[in-house]
Design a protein around this nucleic acid. Structure first.
Length: 313
DNA sequence: TTGTGTTTTATTGCCTCC
DNA sequence: GGAGGCAATAAAACACAA
């Protein structure tokens, strides 16, 4: 253990000084007075190796902690001791660290003059002071990163909670949409059956004779529209000899059926009434799914499931 | 007392700036 | 090219449980 002489000072006095001097780098006068009023500086190595108690207990030597580097008292024994000691690391004393911390709070960068002054005040080598600041900056950066991480995590948790809430709201709305859709489909189906009955009772079915091929008709994805009904209806509408249905539902159904494939009736062929009826009855203009294929007991698996909806704009 | 994990001091190598 | 900063790392000192 390296023995070091003390300057006749105490750590508690030093603490008082530290508190009274907010900016130790600005001037070192009080510190100089404190450390160097005696025959030697007061900092005497690490807590483990040389404490202030040690300073008083070990011997009366006035050798400072790194005084041995000065080679001012070099006997062979001390030279050996110096080289022996240099292999070991020494922790700074509590007060040295306290002083360095205070200095670090003021400014975490170290200008050359300040480094020299601190080293002088603390009885350390300038390089030790530089290293201490270097390591202290690294520790500060690590702490800062931890703080940043915590802040980000908090922010993330908050956003996640918002997202989950929105997700639940979305599911709820989806359920409502599918409920309304079911009702709408059922109503349309009821109207369809009614109008078909009316049509059949009033008008004998004409043979399929228009240009619409069986293949094309089969493309119509509407279960409520039987193929012959579609064909006859179309032939009825576009056969100049046949009376035109002005029933909105019927017309709209035809339009709906046809809209699933490329069949654009010449709008000029339609009366204004028919156009009005179309626009009234077909909004939103989507194509009903095939009734035989659709399972209306359950809403669509996904609102985004495009196969269920067949919008035709 | 000892093994082990953590903290602190110090070194090394690379990079940037003047 | 030298000085200084930084990241990575070594190694000593320290804390603490078993």
């Amino acid at each position: 253990m390296a023995a070091a002489g003390g300057g006749g000072s105490s750590g508690s006095n030093f603490s008082v000084l530290l508190q009274s001097q907010r900016s130790p780098c600005a001037t070192s006068q009080p510190l100089d007075a404190f450390f160097f009023t005696g025959s030697s500086p007061s900092f005497q190595g690490s807590r483990s190796m040389v404490s202030f108690e040690d300073v008083h207990q070990v011997n009366g030597s006035t050798r400072p902690f790194f005084r041995s580097f000065d080679h001012e008292e070099n006997g062979d024994e001390e030279l050996d001791e110096y080289f022996h000691q240099r292999e070991k690391k020494r922790r700074l004393s509590v007060d040295q660290v306290h002083f360095l911390e205070k200095s670090f709070e003021v400014e975490n960068k170290l200008e050359p003059e300040r480094k020299i002054q601190l080293a002088k005040d603390l009885g350390l080598q300038p390089r030790q002071v530089a290293i201490w600041f270097q390591n202290r900056r690294a520790r500060w950066k690590t702490k800062q990163l931890e703080k940043d991480y915590e802040a980000l995590q908090t922010s993330y948790n908050s956003l996640k909670a918002d997202y989950d809430t929105l997700l639940k709201e979305k599911d709820k709305l989806k359920a409502e949409v599918s409920l309304v859709t079911d009702k709408l489909l059922l109503r349309e189906k009821g109207n369809l059956e009614l109008s078909d009955k009316d049509a059949l009772s009033q008008e004998p079915k004409k043979p399929i004779g228009d240009s619409t091929s069986e293949g094309e008709v089969s493309k119509v994805s509407i279960g409520a529209c039987k193929q012959e009904d579609i064909s006859s209806a179309k032939s009825d509408i576009f056969d100049s000899d046949s009376p035109h249905y002005t029933d909105g539902v019927h017309s709209s159904l035809l339009e709906a059926c046809d809209s699933s494939y490329v069949f654009e009736p010449d709008q000029s062929d339609l009366s204004q009434d028919e156009e009005d009826n179309l626009s009234k009855s077909l909004w939103p203009p989507y194509v009903f799914p095939k009734l035989e294929d659709a399972d209306y007991s359950e809403p669509p698996a996904s609102f985004e499931d495009q196969s269920f909806w067949c919008w035709s704009y």
